[in-house]
Nucleic acid binder design. Structure first.
Lengths: 245, 245
DNA sequence: ATAATCAATCTGTATCTACTAATCTTTTCC
DNA sequence: GGAAAAGATTAGTAGATACAGATTGATTAT
């Protein structure tokens, strides 16, 4: 049992993020200087810089030379399949829920877009995600059965942070992904979907498909979801650092 | 006229990216080691690391401790408003086009979602973007008139790299943004939009709105576009560095 | 031949140092 | 009082160095 050593910059990063979220530093204010933070966390300036840079990239902080690090916003979350829905909702101060509709291990007749990705038999976890009790997303998660032996309904709590499918796959089944491809499509709400989301059948909604791969490029899981609500992205200029317009 | 000094890591980054695009290093192969690259570019390992890290974050490269940097893919771009549509299409080996539908300086009656963002009078550039001649996006770009003095149709070529609105705003009008917010909504294609895109009115399509701000948080431009085709994102694990699941 | 072991290679983490450049604050001068 | 100049503060860039940890490939033993 050798503990996976957490790098200092990660520890510091997590601590600063925790402080941000608990309003220890509030939006608009300035953080202490790099030098000062390096002192309080007992690390070098290079290390504290790495932590702060991550927070800048993520959109929490903005840095200005000569001025300092300013608190930008507290929920720069991008709403992709691979960012926890649970956490995103919690961050907004709302209550996420997850109603388990069904588990099929293995699923008898997966659709074509799933069989295209996986050769092996797959399990389906079918859930309705809610915000403050109102239906928000209808999600099917597909995973190869051999990666989730012992999958059972009790693995999927309806409430609390543990409802995050990403956390479940990561913690309980040790699934890790390194890259993913996500597609957002427009579609007319099918009857079954409309019923779950409480909308008129045929209403234009978003259909999102996401496939995640591990570092050997093997598919780990496939998410398929429907939502009537918009997806919001917060972008920061950091993207342009690599791809100049 | 003091030249804006380009940092070494940026120069090196651009050079490696150029080599990647020109197939100097091809997909799947391994790059020379950090030490070796540091030697060829005559910089320290710290500097070369910064350049490589940027390319990893952008998705071009993947690094594995003990193994090295491997070429991942050559077009990891995300399809957001702020990533050049022109460049994305060109990268796929297709031909982008831009048919100018109209320019209004100022626009007599901007919609509410635009007036909400800008206090001042705004200009509208209305264009139909095509791929291999087929209509793909219908886009309206809104900019405060005072930021684009002398705006005229001749600024918008129908073909070539110069059709990129981002390039035009950046090069000709010196507009720079530092952060942006993008929203993807489902909607039924309005008549006028359906006509331009060559689809049935009422078909479910995507409506994307994007507002870009400069570093003083003033809105710089607002994009509003319709598309019937899906949006694809390629995500890499780097996102999780900040927001653990 | 196969498997285990070891050594070399290469990235990951971390520190110290030095200097530059933008910003902010204080002082000075008119 | 207000503007300009000087100084202090702060992030940005860049280097040298050291060691840890993962991977790879060669060597050795079975």
């Amino acid at each position: 049992m050798n503990k996976p050593v957490t790098p200092k910059y990660m520890v510091v990063h997590d601590e600063i993020l925790k402080r941000l979220k608990s309003n220890h530093y509030s939006v608009g204010t300035r953080l202490p200087s790099e030098e000062s933070l390096a002192g309080t966390f007992k690390v070098s300036r290079v290390t504290i810089r790495k932590s702060l840079e991550m927070l800048v990239d993520a959109g929490y902080l903005a840095s200005r030379q000569g001025s300092g690090y300013h608190v930008n916003c507290l929920s720069p979350q991008r709403e992709t399949c691979l960012a926890s829905f649970t956490d995103a909702v919690l961050r907004k101060g709302r209550v996420p829920g997850a109603k388990l509709i069904g588990i099929d291990v293995p699923h008898p007749d997966p659709p074509e877009d799933v069989t295209e990705v996986f050769d092996a038999p797959v399990a389906r976890i079918h859930r309705l995600r809610t915000v403050d009790g109102e239906p928000e997303l209808l999600v099917s998660t597909w995973v190869p059965t051999n990666l989730v032996t012992g999958l059972a309904p009790d693995a999927f709590p309806e409430f609390g942070p543990g409802q995050s499918i990403l956390r479940i796959l990561s913690d309980r089944f040790n699934l890790a992904w390194s890259r993913a491809c996500e597609t957002v499509r427009p579609c007319a709400a099918p009857n079954e979907v409309a019923e779950h989301l409480g909308i008129e059948p045929g209403t234009p909604i978003l259909s999102v498909a996401c496939t995640a791969y591990d570092d050997t490029d093997l598919p780990v899981f496939h998410d398929q979801l429907f939502r009537a609500t918009p997806i919001v992205f917060n972008l920061s200029r950091s993207a342009r650092k690599t791809d100049p317009i």
